[in-house]
Structures are given as structure tokens and as C-alpha cells.
Design a protein around this nucleic acid. Structure first.
Lengths: 199, 199
DNA sequence: CTCTAATGTGAGCATTGCACACATTATATG
DNA sequence: CATATAATGTGTGCAATGCTCACATTAGAG
């Protein structure tokens, strides 16, 4: 009951719904995120949320957008100004940790095709692209920034998902971090290995 | 109606359910995959599928396992024995194309944590790991096979998901293929760029 | 103060997952 | 061949959900 005062009008039901949705997501996973459960938790009738969200998808989209912003913060916190591949590895570790710690949220962010109607969500995605470009520019000043940004985000994103889906063991956070670091190093050494082999 | 003969016993309802599930997945997306819809399409009562699948998750797991096998085939078809980064790029392209062409199936394969109870699913995952190891060994003979396999699968997997989720434009298959190829090249040249910058 | 638009309520409908008791049939066993 | 038993399919029922609609309440503009 985020706000169970007896008033007829809630005050800020939209925010309360988002909060409730986040709580449900973290407590019971994504499947439990129903509009009715959100309404219950906000101490409000089952249909009240429809005044603030067109449908379930709209609610999820709003939560996802919130997630994008938090992800950006989380990454920025991992390393303010990455310059070396090892710096980049730290950010990769932060990305994977975010996915594992806020698993249901992370899924909500990437489960559905980015709804082109949700301005909020598109904007958040664009912000992440900006951020990735900045990192790539700092770490690989000489490379094609567009292609390498795609490469880096893909790699890190895939790493996160494979852990999330149990394709890589994610039980021990320390071990996960080590593996991510190791993988970044190895991948960046791969081209050298190729050149050596071809020489 | 995959098999609407009037017999009381269906003959092979399990297979019919899987077929129906695949059809629903491709026609209406993952959300439409309900046990009842599957039953309807198989021309059978709503609860009949429970004789073959413990619950909805079990059905999805079975479909996912099927998907893993098809993915392995699809990749093998793209290049039988990859030896160079460009060969690898062709496989990456095939991976992304599989994800985009069988989007709902692909999501089903990776949406939920790999159920440790589903033998079939675990086995299929292990098979993919084997396959990736083989490729990596062929293309990067000198590298740490474990770490680089993780890196390569992560990268390709992330690439697929970012396209699938609209973070990368996936409208034109040709353009997607070009981007994937370009990204593989650029990523493998990244370490060179770093060394150049540090020199 | 009044009237309108915003916001919340409650009943209702279709759909779903699943459990249960029951019907039908394949198959093993006498 | 006859029959008991296990496998398989049916139908009913319940609780939950998303969503619509008519209605109640209230905040705030005029």
C-alpha cells in the first residue's frame, strides 16, 4: 500500500503505479506484473490505472524507460571517463551486473520491440546510443565509431543476456565479473591472433 | 486444424501441439501462444494438451528445444567449416537472420532462464556451446577457446537481440547483413586501433 | 459559487491456466 | 479371445487477468 490514505483522489497515482510495478517486478518477476496487482498495491480500484496508462504495454514501456535512465546512471557510475580496454571491461561488468541484479526490469527493457509510439522509450534508447558512442570514442579513438559502437553494445548486451538466461553461470557475482573481464581481453586480442595466424 | 479426424485418440497429439504452437508463434507472436489456442488448433479439447505437457512452460520449453536444433542446422548451413573472420561473419549474419525471421521462436528460446529441469533444453544448449567452440577453434586456433567462445557468442547474440528489439534498424535484410559483416570486421580490428593509439 | 473535466469506482465480459471427475480406447495379461 | 489397467481425451469449474462502460466524486477554472 504505497499510499492508502482514504482520499478519493490519490494525488499522484501515476507515480504510485510505477513504484508498485517496480516492486512487483523485483519481488515476483515479470509475469506477476499485472495491472490489477499494481492497482491493488497502490490501494486503488482495478481500473483506476487506466486513467494513466492506456494498457498494460504502456505501463511496461514507462517502467522500461525508467530502467534505461537508471542503466545509464549505473554505467556512468562504473567509470566516469573510460580510456582503455580495461576501463571498458569495468563498464561491461557494470552492465552485466545491472542485468542480473534487476533481472525482471532488464527483461522488460528489452523484451519487446521498442515501441515507436512511446516517445519516452525512444528518447531513452537514443540516450544510450549517445553514451556508447562517447565511450567508444574515448577507448578507440581511431576506429569507425558507428560500427564499433554497434559491436561493443552488442557484445556487452549479449554477455548480459547469456548470463540472464542461464547459458552462462551467474551464481557468483565475483566469478561473473572475472569472466567478463577475461572475455573483453580475449576478444580484443583476437584480431592479433588472426594476424599472427595469417602471417 | 492440423489433424481433425474424428477419432477419440488423436494419434500423436504431442507432435500436433508442437506444430500448432509453432504456427501460432509465427502468426501472432509469443503472447498468443496459449495452451487453449494450441488445443483449439489441434482440434482437441482445452485440457487435452496437459496429458503431454505439465504446464504452459513445458510446452514452451519443448518448442524452444526444437528451436535450438533448428538454429544449429541453420548456422551449419551458412558455412560448413569456417576458417577466417569473414567466414565467421557469414555465420553471424545467419544467426541474426534466424532471430529476425523466426522472431517469436527466438524469443521463446531465450526469454526465460534455461529451465534446469528440461533435459531437452539443457542438452540443446550444450550442443550450441559445442558448436561455437568448434567454430572458434577453427577461426582463432591460437586463442583461449573458452573465453573467446563466450565472447563470440555474446557478440553475435547481442547483435541479434538489438536488431530484434528495434535498437538497430532491421527493416532491410540486406542492410542488416552488411552491418553485421562490417561490425565483425571493425570489432576484430579494435585491438589494432588501440595499439596504434597507444604507440 | 458553479460547472466541467479529471480522476477513481464497480459491474461485467471474454480469455486464460489449471485442477478435477469422468469417458473412451489401446494394450498387456489371464 | 476376454478383460483389467493404464493412457489418453472430454467437460465443468474456479480464480485471475485485460479491458470497456456507465457512474460517482472531486479539483479547479470561470
Amino acid at each position: 500500500m504505497s499510499q492508502a490514505n482514504g482520499k478519493y483522489h490519490h494525488g499522484d497515482l501515476r507515480a504510485a503505479c510505477l513504484r508498485a510495478a517496480r516492486e512487483l517486478l523485483e519481488e515476483d518477476g515479470g509475469a506477476a506484473l499485472s495491472l490489477r496487482a499494481v492497482a491493488r498495491r497502490a490501494g486503488v480500484s482495478a481500473t483506476a490505472p487506466y486513467r494513466h496508462f492506456a494498457d498494460r504495454d504502456a505501463l511496461v514501456s514507462a517502467v522500461a524507460a525508467q530502467g534505461y535512465r537508471e542503466l545509464a546512471e549505473h554505467l556512468a557510475g562504473a567509470h566516469p571517463d573510460p580510456r582503455t580496454p580495461d576501463d571498458l571491461a569495468e563498464i561491461a561488468i557494470a552492465y552485466v551486473r545491472f542485468a542480473l541484479e534487476r533481472a525482471a526490469l532488464f527483461r522488460a527493457m528489452f523484451a519487446e520491440p521498442c515501441d515507436p509510439n512511446s516517445e519516452e522509450r525512444v528518447a531513452a534508447t537514443a540516450a544510450i546510443w549517445e553514451y556508447v558512442h562517447g565511450i567508444v570514442h574515448g577507448v578507440f579513438p581511431g576506429a569507425d565509431p558507428e560500427a564499433l559502437s554497434v559491436g561493443v553494445w552488442s557484445f556487452v548486451h549479449g554477455l548480459a543476456f547469456l548470463h540472464l538466461d542461464g547459458k552462462l553461470d551467474a551464481a557468483d557475482p565475483g566469478a561473473v565479473a572475472d569472466r567478463v573481464r577475461e572475455t573483453v581481453r580475449t576478444l580484443l586480442a583476437a584480431s592479433a591472433a588472426v594476424r599472427r595466424a595469417q602471417a
